[in-house]
Design a binder for these strands. Structure first.
Length: 653
DNA sequence: TCAATCCGTATC
DNA sequence: ATACGGATTGAC
C-alpha cells in the first residue's frame, strides 16, 4: 500500500503470476504483476493478494514468482498481500487445474471450491498437536477380505494401492476406513477421506478418534461455520495433522505427502458439486491419487457404475469378501409383490408384516425404509398401484394439494374422470406416503411397540437394540447399537420401491440398489434371524442383486449397458443448457473434436434447451477444452445469455 | 491535416 | 468497470 510514486520492484523475481478471482473463461490464465520491494518477503506462492485488474480491485492468488514476464505492456504493482498465510500449495493448484480442464471450467471457479473463505482471527489461533509416533492399526477387521490386509500393508509401506471395496453386510465401515488411514499415517504419509453427509462424518470422526487419536486429524464440513472451518483447514495446510476427513469440498483439502484418498458410498449424489464447474468429488479424489502417486479406496455396500469402470479399466483392484462369507453375514432377502389385496395392514404386504412381527417378538428392532415425501410427487391407481398418467399427453399426474383433483404436470389438464388403463380403477392415491404417515399406520399395525422416525428433518444416529419400529428415509437409517453379540435389525422392510424404480433416470436401478443395501446391511445375518423384505418384482435386476447381495454384478451389467447405449462413464458427455440462441452460438464457435456426437435439443427449464455432446473417453479432454475455448469467445464478447456447460452430469435423461 | 469522438477489445 | 487503440467524423 505504498504510494504509487515511491514503489520499486523487488530485487529478485520481481514478477508475480496471479490467478485473479474472475470467472470469465477468456481471462482464465495467470496475469503478471510487479512485486513492490516492501512486499518481497510476504509475496510468496500461495498467498491471497489484491490487485488492480481492469480498473477494479479484485482478489487473487499469487501462484508463482518469476524473473520476468512475457507481457509486452507495462506491469502494475500488486496492490497488497491480504495475508502472509500461503493457503494454496502447488499440489492443490495442479489438482484444481486438472479439475478445471476436465470440467471445462475456470481455475478461479475451482479454487473457490478448494479454499475456504479467509477468517483473520482463525489465522492467529493455534492447534494442539499430540506428540509421538502413530502405531500400526489392528488389521484383523480387514481379514474377511483376502485383499484387505495386503492393502493395508501396502499403505503402511508407502506404496499406492488402488481399490474398490465392497463392504460386507453389517460391516463397521468407519472402523475399517479409520484403520486404512491409520496404516497410512503409520507409514509416514497423509490421508484424505470424504463422506456424503454429516451423519457419516460423525461416524467416521468417532472411529478415527479411537483408532488414530484426537488432534491427528481434522473434520471439515460446511456446517462448521467460517471461523472453525478455516482454522481446521489451516491446521491441514500447515502440516499439523496427517489426516483430513470431510464432506464434498474436503476432496481439495491440502495434505502433505499424500498416501491415501478414500471415499465412502461414492454413488451418493451429494458428491456432485452444484457450483460451476460441477466437479464430482470422486473424480477430484481419483485425479488427486493419480497426481500424487497416492493410494485410493472407493468403499461402499453398493457399487457405482463409475467404480465398476475404474475396476474394469484395470486402474483399481477389487477388495471383496468370498461369496461364502457374504452368504454367512447377509440377511435373508425376499421380494414380495405389491398386491393391494394381500395387505396385512394399510401399507404392509402380509409377508412383510409377518417378518416384522417375528422380529419384534424376538425383541429385535425393525427398520422400515420409505422414500422421501416429495421425492416423486405423483399419484398412482389406488387399486393396482400403476402410476397414473395423463390420458391426453401421458405426462405424470400429480396432486397439487392433499385434497384436490389430480392434474398433469406436463399439460396441466385436470384428470377428473380418470380410469386406470390396467385395472379400470377410478380411485387415485398419493404414490409416496411420507415417513410420518407411515409411522402412524405402522403404530396401529403393531400396537404397543414404540415407533421412531428418522428423516431429513431429524436424523437419528443410533437406536437401541430392542423391539421397536424405526421408519427412516434413505440415507437416514439409524444404526442399532450392538448389545453383546447380536446387533442389527431383526427385519428390514423396503416399501414403495417402485417410486425409485420407475424414475426415468439412467441411474435408477443402481441408485435403488444402493439405497436398499444401505438399509439391508444393517440387518442381522440370516442365521441370527435377520430378514429383508423388499416390496418389488423379484425379476428385476436390482432386486436380484439385492437378493444375492452382489452389487458388483449389477454394476457390471449396468456398465455394459452404458457401453451399448453410449452413456457415461463408458463415454464422456457434456450438456449445454441455455436459451436456444445462446446454445447455438456456443456450438457455432466451438471447434469440437472430430466425430463428436451432437444430440438434441431437448427442452430444459422455461425458455431454455439442452444439447448433448458425446465423445469417446479418449477425447474427453479435447471436448472440454473446445467448450472452454468456445465459452471464452462468448465471454470476451460479453454475450448476454449464459450457457451452462456440464461435463458428465449426474442426471442424464 | 488534425483533434474530437465513437467503438470494440483487453483487462498484466 | 475502465483504459486504450484504431477507426471515423467533421472542421479547417
Amino acid at each position: 500500500m505504498a504510494t504509487r510514486a515511491a514503489r520499486e520492484p523487488a530485487p529478485v523475481a520481481p514478477v508475480a503470476k496471479v490467478c485473479v478471482d474472475v470467472s470469465l473463461s477468456h481471462l482464465d490464465r495467470p496475469f503478471d504483476y510487479l512485486v513492490p520491494a516492501e512486499l518481497d518477503a510476504v509475496a510468496v506462492p500461495g498467498v491471497r493478494v489484491r490487485v488492480r485488474f481492469a480498473g477494479q480491485l479484485v482478489d487473487g492468488y499469487l501462484i508463482a514468482r518469476a524473473d520476468g514476464s512475457a507481457h509486452p505492456g507495462r506491469l502494475t504493482y500488486l496492490d497488497r498481500v491480504v495475508s502472509p498465510e500461503p493457503v494454496l500449495g502447488p499440489e492443490v493448484v495442479a489438482l484444481a487445474r486438472a479439475v478445471a480442464q476436465r470440467y471445462a471450467g475456470t481455475l478461479a471457479d475451482v479454487l473457490r471450491l478448494a479454499v475456504p473463505p479467509r477468517h483473520a482471527r482463525a489465522e492467529a489461533a493455534s492447534f494442539d498437536v499430540p506428540a509421538g509416533p502413530v502405531g500400526a492399526p489392528d488389521p484383523a477387521g480387514w481379514a474377511a477380505y483376502p485383499a484387505g490386509r495386503p492393502y493395508l500393508a501396502a499403505l503402511a509401506d508407502g506404496r499406492a494401492p488402488r481399490a474398490v471395496w465392497t463392504a460386507l453386510p453389517g460391516e463397521d465401515w468407519p472402523a475399517r476406513l479409520a484403520e486404512a488411514v491409520t496404516a497410512t499415517v503409520h507409514g509416514g504419509r497423509g490421508a484424505v477421506v470424504i463422506v456424503a453427509d454429516a451423519t457419516d462424518l460423525d461416524r467416521l470422526d468417532a472411529a478415527l478418534r479411537t483408532t488414530l487419536g484426537e488432534g491427528r486429524y481434522v473434520a471439515l464440513s460446511a456446517a462448521l461455520g467460517p471461523a472453525e472451518r478455516y482454522r481446521r483447514f489451516l491446521a491441514a495446510r500447515r502440516g499439523q495433522v496427517p489426516a483430513v476427513i470431510g464432506t464434498r469440498a474436503a476432496a481439495f483439502a491440502p495434505m502433505r505427502d499424500l498416501g491415501l484418498v478414500a471415499m465412502w458410498d461414492d454413488g451418493d449424489d451429494l458428491f456432485a458439486e452444484p457450483r460451476a464447474p460441477y466437479p464430482h468429488a470422486r473424480e477430484v479424489l481419483l485425479t488427486r491419487a493419480q497426481q500424487a502417486g497416492a493410494g485410493a479406496l472407493l468403499g461402499g455396500y453398493g457399487r457405482s457404475v463409475e467404480a465398476q469402470q475404474v475396476l474394469e479399466s484395470g486402474w483399481a483392484r477389487e477388495i471383496v469378501a468370498p461369496r461364502q462369507t457374504v452368504r454367512h453375514r447377509a440377511p435373508a432377502v425376499t421380494p414380495t409383490a405389491d398386491d393391494p389385496r394381500d395387505q396385512a395392514s394399510a401399507r404392509l404386504p402380509s409377508l412383510a408384516w409377518r417378518a416384522a412381527r417375528d422380529a419384534l417378538a424376538a425383541g429385535a428392532p425393525v427398520l422400515v425404509q420409505v422414500p422421501r415425501r416429495g421425492y416423486l410427487p405423483s399419484v398412482a391407481c389406488a387399486d393396482c398401484r400403476t402410476p397414473a398418467r395423463c390420458p391426453h399427453c401421458h405426462g405424470p399426474l400429480a396432486l397439487p394439494s392433499a385434497a384436490g383433483t389430480a392434474e398433469c404436470r406436463w399439460c396441466g389438464r385436470a384428470a377428473a374422470g380418470y380410469a386406470c388403463p390396467e385395472c379400470g380403477g377410478r380411485r387415485l392415491r398419493a404414490a409416496v406416503v411420507g415417513a410420518r404417515r407411515t409411522a402412524e399406520e405402522l403404530g396401529r399395525a403393531f400396537p404397543g411397540v414404540p415407533v421412531r422416525t428418522s428423516g431429513r428433518d431429524e436424523v437419528l444416529g443410533t437406536v437401541p437394540a430392542e423391539a421397536a419400529v424405526v421408519v427412516a428415509t434413505p440415507g437416514a437409517e439409524p444404526v442399532p447399537v450392538r448389545s453383546g453379540d447380536s446387533g442389527g435389525y431383526g427385519a428390514v422392510l423396503l416399501l414403495d420401491t417402485w417410486a425409485l424404480l420407475t424414475r426415468s433416470d439412467l441411474r435408477a436401478g443402481e441408485e435403488a440398489l444402493r439405497r436398499w443395501l444401505a438399509a439391508a446391511a444393517l440387518a442381522r445375518p440370516a442365521e441370527q434371524g435377520g430378514r429383508v423384505v423388499v416390496v418389488a418384482d423379484g425379476g428385476l435386476a436390482p432386486v436380484q442383486a439385492l437378493v444375492r447381495f452382489d452389487p458388483g454384478w449389477l454394476a457390471g451389467r449396468e456398465l455394459s449397458e452404458r457401453r451399448e447405449l453410449g452413456f457415461p462413464p463408458a463415454v464422456r458427455m457434456a450438456t449445454l443448457t441455455g436459451t436456444p440462441a445462446a446454445v447455438a452460438e456456443l456450438l457455432s464457435v466451438a471447434r469440437l473434436p472430430e466425430g463428436t456426437d451432437v444430440l438434441g435439443p431437448v427442452p430444459a427449464a422455461e425458455g431454455q434447451e439442452r444439447m448433448l455432446l458425446r465423445v469417446p473417453r479418449s477425447a474427453g479432454l479435447a471436448l472440454a477444452g473446445a467448450l472452454h475455448a468456445a465459452a471464452g469467445v462468448r465471454s470476451a464478447k460479453k454475450a448476454a445469455d449464459p450457457v451452462r456447460i456440464q461435463v458428465d452430469p449426474l442426471a442424464l435423461l
